[in-house]
Design a protein around this nucleic acid. Structure first.
Length: 473
RNA sequence: GGUCCCUUCGUCUAUCGGUUAGGACACCAGAUUUUCAAUCUGGGAAGAGGGGUUCGACUCCCCUAGGGACUGCCA
């Protein structure tokens, strides 16, 4: 390895997702780690869309990735590179490899390949094409693929930043296809050429690519190009330790967004999942950037823990700007088909900061604020109806009068008023609190009484009490 | 089948040859209490198994077991 080391150049990282129609949470974590590392080193973070498989790559599928990164707040430092656009360059490189003898045309038919594959597997060796050492068929223009002429001896060591040195026997690595029979470049070739052309210094990706790193290393060497540094991070598993899939609740970035998780919470959680800085659990982007190093990434797979994600999300929900939260919760309600009365919106806005401590997601936040959006007269649930005895109704009526006289409609004042009222009645809050709660919320979840009253506002609160008292008369 | 990766409380992790193996989430108990939460206090909980190396191993080596990835004219 005489080529100059990429380690001497400014850091350039990238993520290279293929547009499949969804952005896997593992891709999101790879993006985060690449982003963190680039930022940490003062380097550049790039995005390359691996769309060499023309059948699967569609514009909407590309958009999903762009949207996912946008939502996560991980912005590439340059417009995305579309791999397919480099196809001509890829073919040129293959042509060059053909000329220097590091590639050859293989005329095996799919059937022959099938047979050879079976044989190789049975013998426990890598697949080889007979065309590796054979002259092309005379004057024929049969279809062919171009294969890499890999070394039969020696070993390839991938000095992985995360896994440490990993050695592969070259004879175990097969002669992979570089160019398909239709002339289209394949993934392993395109990756090498593009990573080289883009000046990528650090390839940080899922460890499902670890063995590809060996194959790609061979191509880098054949071309006389310096290899980037590799860091293969373990994959994210479901809570049961199996590969994360739909049945675990979610696997796409968009699903986490729909479930009401905040992007900053996802960043914190994903960073902590498989990487750590001492005992720090909650940290800002700035801290993560300052502390992050690929070499510190844990080498064993991690399981997604919904409870911890919820805990982290709750933390960021508490910190989030209430105006921003209001907008997002309003959208959740709208998405659920809840009618948003103009007049109820201020109540919703007031309720958000009062209940967000108890919410793990925006969906929870919506559940906890739906009481503000109910239209008068509220339909009372059975439990509340049962609580409204003669005695309690009389008491609520007296409470209503004293509420109407409240000096101001704030949580502290209302709290004091409620306590004073209870004392004046010679009973505990438990004697009428649940009933009042039911009357105000209609049985929906609501925060403590003073907060509920405050959120609803004086007119709405008194109105709901009046409704209930007259309704049951 | 072959090659490669992984293995500390239920979960995420700290430890980088010498610690009562620490923290967080979750869990349990108690406090609080106007629902659900939140909050406060306390508690239980771990080095997969077996061999080595060493004065001394969770830390280093080997074997076994279990989990995972790759083995495509997919990426």
């Amino acid at each position: 390895m005489s080529a100059p080391s990429p380690a001497d150049r400014p850091v350039v990282t990238r993520i290279a997702p293929s547009p499949t129609g969804m952005m896997h949470i593992g891709t999101a974590r790879a993006a985060l780690y690449n982003w963190l590392y680039a930022r940490h080193c003062g380097g550049t973070f790039l995005l390359r869309i691996e769309d060499t498989d023309r059948e699967r790559s569609t514009q909407p599928a590309v958009q999903v990735i762009l949207d996912g990164l946008e939502w996560l707040g991980l912005h590439p430092d340059a417009p995305p590179v579309f791999q397919h656009a480099n196809a001509e360059r890829h073919r040129e490189v293959v042509q060059h490899m053909l000329e220097i003898g590091r590639a050859y045309r293989c005329y095996m038919t799919v059937e022959e390949l099938e047979v050879e594959r079976e044989k190789a597997r049975a013998e426990g060796r890598a697949i080889r094409s007979p065309w590796r050492d054979r002259e092309p068929p005379a004057g024929a223009n049969q279809p062919f693929v171009v294969r890499f002429r890999g070394p039969l001896e020696g070993e390839t060591i991938v000095d992985d930043l995360i896994k440490g040195p990993v050695r592969f026997m070259n004879k175990e690595l097969d002669d992979l296809v570089l160019l398909r029979s239709d002339g289209a470049p394949t993934y392993n070739l395109a990756v090498v050429v593009d990573d080289h052309d883009m000046g990528i210094t650090h390839v940080i990706r899922g460890d499902d690519h670890l063995s590809n790193a060996a194959r790609q290393s061979l191509i880098f060497e054949a071309l006389g190009w310096a290899r980037p540094a590799f860091g293969h991070m373990p994959m994210i598993h479901g809570p049961d330790g199996k590969k994360l899939s739909k049945r675990h609740g979610a696997q796409a970035v968009s699903e986490f967004a729909d479930m009401g998780y905040l992007p900053e919470a996802m960043r914190n959680y994903l960073a902590r999942l498989g990487w750590g800085h001492g005992d720090d659990e909650i940290f800002s982007d700035e801290q993560a950037i300052a502390w992050f190093d690929v070499a510190d990434v844990v080498s064993s797979p991690a399981r997604l823990d919904w409870d911890k994600l919820g805990f982290i999300n709750n933390h960021y929900l508490r910190q989030a700007d209430d105006g921003r939260l209001f907008d997002m919760v309003r959208d959740v309600h709208a998405g659920r088909g809840v009618h948003l009365h103009e007049t109820a919106l201020p109540a919703l806005a007031r309720a958000v900061p009062l209940v967000k401590e108890g919410a793990k997601t925006l969906l929870d936040l919506a559940d906890l604020t739906v009481f503000t959006l109910k239209a008068r007269p509220l339909e009372l649930d059975a439990r509340t109806q049962g609580l409204l005895t003669e005695e309690t109704r009389a008491r609520l009526s007296r409470l209503r009068d004293s509420l109407a006289d409240a000096s101001d409609w704030s949580v502290p004042t209302l709290n004091a008023l409620l306590r004073a009222f209870a004392e004046g009645e010679g009973v505990g809050l438990g004697k009428f609190g649940p009933a009042l709660r039911g009357v105000l919320s209609g049985g929906a979840p609501a925060p403590d009484l003073a907060s509920t009253l405050c959120a609803l506002g004086d007119a709405e609160s008194l109105g709901r009490i009046d409704d209930a008292l007259s309704q049951l008369r």
